[in-house]
């Protein structure tokens, strides 16, 4: 098991290396002198020369890459020319809201989607199944920001139940924290719920046709026990896989949702950085989100063995 985790960790290195090369090349693909871009609009000619020397931009491109990689691996993403602060520092400031939003969304999605999927599979072919599946296709089709504004309109403007936008740290009060997090999480979870509910249904439906389900029923076990302990448990692997794959949707959604709800997180930071052509920040955010995606999927692979003892590495 440990050897397997070790091997999988090693396998993430080439993937992250490709990401790193791509992120590094970004600055070179942009039109213009990288040193001038990093220095920003207000830089003097001397600043540009200083940066060129400091980052080794006058050296061959392969050397440049390794100099840059060395900095990045020690957590030095350079200085954001927009915020005039170390990028690492900005990211540390912005990570909290995004983590809160992601965690809340993930919890909400699983809590809603898995029961929906199980019920749809159990009652498959009925109107309930069709409603759940219809919602699933709809959830894929309605863009995140449309959902966000619809929810704001309904709950914040019309009904006045919740604040419209913004974010409040947990330290400033639990009620305010959750009141501001409910709508964004709900918005973001729509597509995730659609994805998880659909795969849960398919997966449970497949398992429900197995002999051991009939045996369990014949033993006189209640429907609930059969569904939860026999069906869902065995259907868990594809569900967990899709939760892992869906992290890309979550990350893409975070960028949009944080913009709609004015949440000062990493997603909002990404958009601001792109609009300001703040490349060091854009690079750092892409590396970080990709790493998060890769690590979460590693975690998912490891989780297989816990969910399905038949899987051995």
């Amino acid at each position: 098991m440990l050897a397997y985790i070790g091997r999988r960790l090693l396998a993430t290195i080439p993937v992250m290396a490709v990401v790193a090369v791509f992120v590094f090349m970004m600055l070179r693909l942009a039109s213009g002198d990288p040193a001038a871009i990093i220095a920003g609009n207000a830089a003097t000619a001397q600043d540009v020369i200083d940066i060129r020397q400091k980052l080794g931009l006058d050296r061959p491109i392969v050397t440049q890459f390794f100099i840059w990689l060395g900095h990045v691996l020690t957590g030095d993403f350079g200085e954001s020319f927009f915020y005039k602060k170390q990028v690492a520092e900005i990211i540390a400031d912005r990570a909290g809201p995004t983590l809160a939003l992601a965690a809340c969304t993930l919890g909400l999605s699983v809590l809603i989607a898995v029961p929906l999927g199980v019920v749809a599979a159990y009652r498959h072919g009925t109107w309930l199944d069709r409603v759940v599946m219809g919602f699933s296709v709809l959830g894929f089709s309605v863009p995140v920001f449309v959902v966000g504004y619809a929810l704001i309109y309904l709950f914040a403007i019309r009904l006045n139940w919740l604040p419209v936008q913004g974010y409040q740290p947990l330290a400033d009060g639990v009620a305010g924290f959750f009141a501001r997090l409910i709508l964004p999480s709900l918005t973001l979870s729509v597509i995730y719920i659609a994805l998880i509910a659909r795969i849960t249904r398919t997966s449970v439906l497949e398992v429900l046709g197995e002999d051991y389900i009939r045996t369990a029923r014949a033993k006189g076990l209640s429907n609930r026990v059969v569904l939860m302990r026999h069906a869902l448990r065995n259907a868990a692997v594809p569900i967990v896989t899709v939760i892992g794959i869906g992290v890309t949707l979550l990350i893409g959604g975070v960028v949009v949702t944080e913009s709609v709800f004015s949440i000062p997180g990493l997603g909002r930071l990404t958009v601001d950085a792109v609009l300001a052509r703040d490349y060091p920040t854009v690079q750092a955010v892409i590396l970080l989100f990709s790493l998060a995606y890769v690590l979460i999927n590693l975690l998912v692979d490891v989780a297989y063995t816990l969910l399905d003892p038949r899987i051995r590495y």
Binding site: M26, V274, F289
Partner: peptide
């Protein structure tokens, strides 16, 4: 395929946003 794995590790919307910022 390693190259494709690497590209797929970057969330699609993020990659698109980063790319449009270049041009």
């Amino acid at each position: 395929m390693r190259l494709m794995d690497g590209l797929m590790a970057i969330p699609a919307i993020l990659l698109a946003i980063a790319l449009v910022s270049l041009w």
